[in-house]
Design a protein around this nucleic acid. Structure first.
Lengths: 208, 208
DNA sequence: GGCAGAATTCGCACTGAGTGCAACTTGGGG
DNA sequence: CCCCAAGTTGCACTCAGTGCGAATTCTGCC
């Protein structure tokens, strides 16, 4: 999502109000949508209802969101996580193995998932088949974002495949850990679950 | 997809014609749909057109397929691959590490992907966002199918996490290899690409 | 052969997502 | 204050998918 700053000749931002208002409206729609989804389920909520709750016309909804499921995905999902991932990766040392850097980033990012909201969103995602597919796709996206971030750190073309593999495994462990953690009533933290799975991995598969 | 044999009291199958006809109709619809998809694209093909090409009423289409994208997925995708996976897994020795068994199964299965049809289907899948999401989801499904098959081989509950991890990595390598192979004009076989990626993995990540 | 009951097919009407278009409103710059 | 562009809206339309009930086509059985 390219940022389109409203920059003009002089050097100072002429008018941010317009952008601000748009952002606020988008947020209002998202909030209304999410509340309705949680309250009555994704499928049972119509775009008309979201629009009404947000105080806009049905047509305007589609001006802000291309599709209904984008409301869910836009929440603070892929976008925020991926950008957080890139900055976390850039903070890593190139001395270590790419996989270890990926592991560190994943653990760094875990906090973003460790919220009640995140659990609620996840439950929502599981309620509809098309939604579940979209969710899986965002995880695949995260994987390729991590690979891209790694390429910035280790630009050697000969290592591309290694980087893809490392990010695949790191994100895979995140996926497994999230699944287990979410289905687990106990008070285990996600970070602890991650650590355990990473060390399992190292013990049984990596055979270091 | 549970097989529903029409078995009655006596012991012999009374009537297979009904089932046969249904199967044939389903195949006819799928064929018509696939041809239209290839010819003019997924989004540009309507259910009405598929129904007409298959010589049935629109409503009947939905009696055979729950959704339009199911025509694509039903082709010979997840179902056949997953069942092939299970039998390939059962042929493995429990003496080896689960990951090695997974690797062997993946290589065993590679032939199923190594067809022109498979490439065409893949191109179709990439043509629409919702379709791509569905495709990613089938790969996630394959991963959990492999994990389930592994559980049959190594039932020890203490090893569950290891099995999940092993199947995640094995399927991940398949995913990477498919991607590279499909985007590659040269005559490299999928099997060769797989072998190379598995050995890369062992060299750089597994550190054996 | 003919009949009762089922499985299958179909038409129809409906809901809801998403789009194209044209008109209308609003807000900021000159 | 006027102009222009951005933002907003209503309307009409296409298409996927569903519920329901009627019509048609088997299948087993007498």
């Amino acid at each position: 999502m390219p940022i389109d700053w409203n920059v003009r000749g002089g050097g100072d931002v002429v008018s941010a109000t317009r952008e601000d208002k748009k952002t606020a409206t988008r947020a209002r729609i998202a909030k209304a949508g999410l509340e309705l989804f949680v309250e009555r389920g994704y499928d049972a909520t119509t775009v008309d209802e979201i629009a009404e709750a947000a105080g806009i016309a049905r047509r305007t909804f589609f001006y802000y969101f291309k599709t209904k499921d984008e409301v869910l995905l836009a929440w603070h999902g892929a976008g925020a996580v991926s950008s957080g991932l890139v900055s976390a990766m850039l903070r890593q040392s190139t001395e270590q193995a790419p996989f270890d850097a990926g592991k560190a980033c994943i653990i760094d990012l875990a906090a973003r998932y460790e919220t009640e909201e995140s659990k609620a969103m996840d439950a929502l995602m599981r309620s509809s088949a098309s939604l579940r597919a979209r969710k899986d796709a965002t995880e695949v996206q995260l994987e390729s974002d991590m690979a891209d971030a790694m390429v910035m750190m280790w630009p050697d073309p000969a290592r591309r495949a290694e980087l893809r593999m490392a990010s695949m495994i790191a994100v895979g462990v995140l996926r497994l850990s999230l699944e287990e953690w979410r289905g687990d009533d106990s008070a285990n933290t996600l970070t602890a679950t991650l650590e355990r799975h990473f060390s399992d991995l190292e013990r049984h598969i990596l055979r270091t």
